[in-house]
Write a protein that binds this DNA or RNA. Structure first.
Lengths: 412, 412
DNA sequence: TCAGCTAAATCCAATTGATGGATGAAGTCA
DNA sequence: TGACTTCATCCATCAATTGGATTTAGCTGA
């Protein structure tokens, strides 16, 4: 049920609106903020004073006069707030410390052994994160919390990961609670693709305002959906399951049991398999693939590099996977009517041009929306660390975004 | 850019929240409203008084005591507000007059000749609508406006229909403006599927609270998306394009140019064609199909009736179309993470069981969400007139729903 | 150089709507 | 009949926005 509102909440909301506008529209004056938000000059003045007092924005110089008193420009203060972000992946955890401007201050990569024990992983990661914050000497009072981006399905209500296909043995692990206890900080948890989308929205400024579909290529494929500046979480907290969109069916059975799913055609393992099947052992040897499932991560890296340097066979298998991704993207775009698709994730490194091109072709040559305006296909503005930065953004976003309540441990 | 808020708006918002709660939760007491909305008893009391004064709700009896004073129950007052709704279709326009409770007071069906002249159609429909309102003797001051549900793409910013595939010659017709001038009332315009979804949300009460996907079978196929009690319009006002989701590809080229689209496999014309192709002229004769494209509407009706009465060939072609719809629905459901799919539209009459069954199979046997909870597949609570009632709901919804601005003619 | 003008930002009184605590109203139960 | 509950409202207070007046700061032209 939709909740009612009261005055303090209105105040907080308007503060969030103004801060968001200052963050995304760069240095901006009070009058412009008033015009943008529809609030009175007076109100903007009041709100800005509070933000100044809170240390979240600063006055940075003045704009040239337009006939009268010059406007004083306001900009976000990077050291106004900080957040820690963790991206959990089967073989490594990436931890970052991010400031209000979205800049990564320090980062650390923790190799994880597969399979790994949840309690052990949480313990190691939490300690590493706390150490990172300590050494960076940020004001502890301005460290807002820890965000976690986890692969696979999440139970939104309990804050647990639900048997992610890539983390064997992690069934119903209450990550939210575990990290809250280990760090004694507010903790936010989300699906990696959704976290990445929030990160783009938070860091991307005007280029990521409004609505977009974020396609995330990590160990699997997923999507984050931002509609009208708000992330879609879905009834069970799992919106954006991209791997189960229907595409041209083949013989492969998805782990969900279906045969028409996108998922089994564009995972690293599947693409490597394609190469071996279609182009033979010789091609694999030339490229340098071991073909050993245990060294999947390395093989995938090698294959991507081969594709980037133009190896025909590598390009071929990547392209046919990308074509299917394009089909799915076309459907998603026309269903959601977004005019922007953003690509990201470390699994994309090296093959962006191919994937971008295929999605562009699929989306812009046939979609109905094309008649109205072309759909932009762009790369993440954050880059390789979207997952971790996105996780940190969960916290910042949760604290400073209008109309958004953080998915956090009630006890914390 | 996200707008700021002010006190009058808060007041309006809370009034809308409370009215919405009274509408959806049937007869309900003030205390329950307070608990539901998170507002104070005091505030609810104030808000309710305003709603009573405005004539939008009434006190209807009292609940049995639970140990103290009995709660007085509040219910929406059907005669509190009215709206006209028009569903434009290639061969007919359905006009309804709806009250605040969502009851259809009067309705009228206007046969349209194909092809038809936009100006002429608007003129006839507008006059019929006005006459309907006049004869029903509703208080003109409580008639809030006219809603239009039009097939095919809409240009949200200009309020025009953009070359709907089923209305030849209707390219960029500014329906919003034309109807506003013809009726001198506030006018709202939306895609038929989206309008139908809003209608379900408005009429359906608790059964349609939260999020759902509405699959609309009219002359074509479309979907309306409701997420967290809010309709998704999309960047260009065309969210829910369901016909361009990818499914098992065949040889048919969609009017968008693609080959993997759902659309060309589940239109009435396509299904009739299937029957002729797969089961021959003999089957068509047995069922009673003319096969003449000019009598498409009639043929489609006949075919549906045959399917309902169990004709094997008819069931076969309907089922294979339904199977594809199921594939698309599965993708949409996992992407949006909704836990309810609603079916409606007059093109569904007679074949609901088959379509329902196929979607159920596709969605609930393979979706990931299934692991968490089954997805409900239900029929429209409104029935055949969803289109028109939905159109009327556009107006009611626009006036009385929290956080929603009506897509209306700025001049009106 | 100074008065006149313009635009930005702030001060002040008024208004609106929610809140918490106290009070009245209506019933139940022993 | 009296004690207790629950519902609903009254009253003073508080928080936030608004509109108009005022101050601050820079531009312009005689």
């Amino acid at each position: 049920m939709l909740g009612g509102t009261n005055l303090p909440r209105v105040g907080g909301y308007n503060q969030a609106v103004v801060l968001d506008a200052i963050r995304t529209r760069g240095p901006i004056s009070r009058v412009e903020l008033a015009a943008l938000s529809g609030l009175t000059n007076q109100t903007v003045s009041n709100v800005v004073r509070k933000l100044l007092d809170a240390g979240l924005v600063t006055e940075t110089g003045q704009a040239p006069s337009s006939g009268g008193k010059r406007r004083t420009l306001l900009a976000p203060r990077p050291d106004g707030a900080y957040a820690l972000g963790v991206h959990l992946d089967p073989d490594a955890a990436v931890i970052v410390l991010v400031n209000l401007a979205g800049e990564v201050l320090t980062s650390r990569r923790l190799r994880l052994s597969v399979p790994s024990e949840p309690a052990d992983v949480v313990d190691r990661v939490a300690r590493a994160a706390l150490r990172l914050a300590e050494r960076s000497a940020v004001d502890p009072g301005r460290l807002l919390g820890l965000g976690i981006a986890a692969p696979g399905p999440i139970d939104g209500s309990s804050g647990a990961v639900v048997s992610p296909p890539n983390l064997p043995g992690w069934d119903r692990v209450p990550l939210l609670k575990m990290f809250a206890e280990a760090t004694d900080m507010p903790v936010a948890l989300d699906n990696d693709a959704t976290a990445a989308a929030i990160g783009e929205r938070w860091i991307g400024g005007e280029a990521r305002a409004g609505s977009f579909l974020f396609i995330y290529l990590g160990t699997g494929i997923g999507a984050g959906i931002v509609l009208n500046n708000t992330v879609l979480h879905g009834d069970s907290g799992n919106a954006g399951e991209f791997g189960h969109l229907a595409v041209e069916p083949g013989d492969r059975v998805c782990h969900c049991g279906g045969t028409g799913c996108l998922g089994p055609y564009c995972s690293p393992a599947a693409i490597i398999d394609d190469l071996l099947r279609l182009h033979g052992r010789a091609a694999a040897d030339r490229i340098g693939l071991t073909g050993d499932p245990a060294s999947l991560h390395g093989d995938w890296k090698v294959l991507r590099r081969a594709a980037r340097t133009g190896d025909e066979d590598a390009c071929d298998v990547v392209r046919s996977a990308a074509r299917r991704i394009g089909q799915a993207a076309r459907g998603a775009v026309s269903l959601l009517d977004v005019s922007r698709v953003v690509l990201g994730g470390e699994g994309l490194r090296g093959i962006e041009p191919i994937v971008r091109e295929e999605i562009d072709t699929a989306v812009n040559s046939t979609s109905v929306a094309r008649a109205i305006r072309p759909i932009a296909i762009e790369q993440s503005v954050i880059g390789d660390t979207v997952g971790a930065v996105g996780a940190a953004s969960l916290v910042l976003h949760g604290n400073y975004t209008p109309g958004w309540r953080m998915l956090t441990d009630p006890s914390g």
